[in-house]
């Protein structure tokens, strides 16, 4: 399971990563997978300024994957891939991402896919390869976490408020960040979540309604079976009744052949005829 390390202590905002990514991935004008900026607070001369670094964080439980109706977004080797040829342009991913990562480019979503093709061909992600500040790493998750913790220990001597970001946030990120300060100082959400509407829809309503649909189909099926059985039984019962009456009527007809019972037999004949007519 691959993971990136992004060390915002070392990052000096040189944009080597941005340029390498755009070049290696042949991204056209207007498409960019990494955005570097600054966040400044305070007033002269007591100023704090931080380099911010926005890129896909390859969430382990990615909201974009959850909402994508076509499967264009999917997880692979721990990273979040995007097959644009399957993208329908619905923009659900843009709305769902807690970090605002996917951008629409020419009516399709676009974002970092962890340099899938490059890595498969034996290379390393372009950003990692070029970073002069050694702020980026790429490797197995355990290795990356261990390195992140080592870096954090040293960084905390300079910034006691330093911490990691991505070990557990949003269910765990595919980019483990080393932050010199709390997430807000880097324009990162402190407690990133899927939007409630998405959680509600994707994780509650959809499964529940699917379950309900399934249940109602099952119930309908069972009901149909029971109904069918009842019907068959009823028809049998009616046939049996009809047969029993016929046997009785024939017995009456046989006993109605002597003089002493003529008037009765005449009455019996006409009663028999009436019964038969009713049974038909």
């Amino acid at each position: 399971m691959f993971t990136f390390l992004l060390d915002l202590g070392r990052c000096i905002g040189c944009q080597g990563c941005v340029a390498a990514c755009k070049t290696g991935n042949e991204l056209p004008v207007g498409a960019q997978y990494i955005q570097i900026s600054e966040k400044t607070t305070g007033s002269f001369p007591d100023v704090t300024s931080r380099v911010t670094n926005k890129r896909c964080l390859h969430c382990l439980d990615a909201a974009c994957v959850t909402v994508c109706p076509t499967g264009a977004l999917y997880k692979e080797d721990g990273l979040t891939r995007l097959d644009r040829t399957k993208c329908s342009g619905c923009t659900y991913c843009v709305d769902a991402c807690p970090f605002g990562v996917p951008k629409m480019y020419e009516e399709r979503s676009s974002k970092c896919d962890g340099c899938a093709a490059v890595v498969k061909a034996g290379g390393e992600p372009w950003c990692v390869k070029t970073c002069p500040s050694n702020a980026l790493m790429y490797g197995e998750r355990e290795e990356i976490l261990a390195e992140a913790k080592t870096r954090l220990a040293t960084l905390q001597k300079r910034y006691p408020n330093a911490r990691l970001y991505g070990e557990t946030e949003a269910g765990g990120l595919g980019v483990i960040m080393v932050l010199p300060d709390e997430p807000g100082a880097f324009d990162l959400p402190t407690n990133p979540q899927l939007p409630l509407s998405v959680t509600a829809w994707q994780k509650v309503v959809q499964p529940v309604s699917l379950a309900m649909t399934g249940l109602s189909i099952a119930v309908t099926g069972v009901a149909a079976v029971i109904a069918r059985r009842n019907h068959v039984q009823e028809v049998k019962r009616l046939h049996l009744l009809a047969e029993a009456e016929l046997v009785e009527a024939e017995a009456v007809v046989d006993s109605g052949q002597s003089d002493s019972n003529q008037s009765d037999s005449n009455q019996s004949d006409s009663e028999t005829v009436e019964r038969e007519e009713r049974a038909a």
Partner: peptide
Amino acid sequence: AGEGVDLSPN
């Protein structure tokens, strides 16, 4: 371009 253009490098 515009037909679900694959932006991965080839």
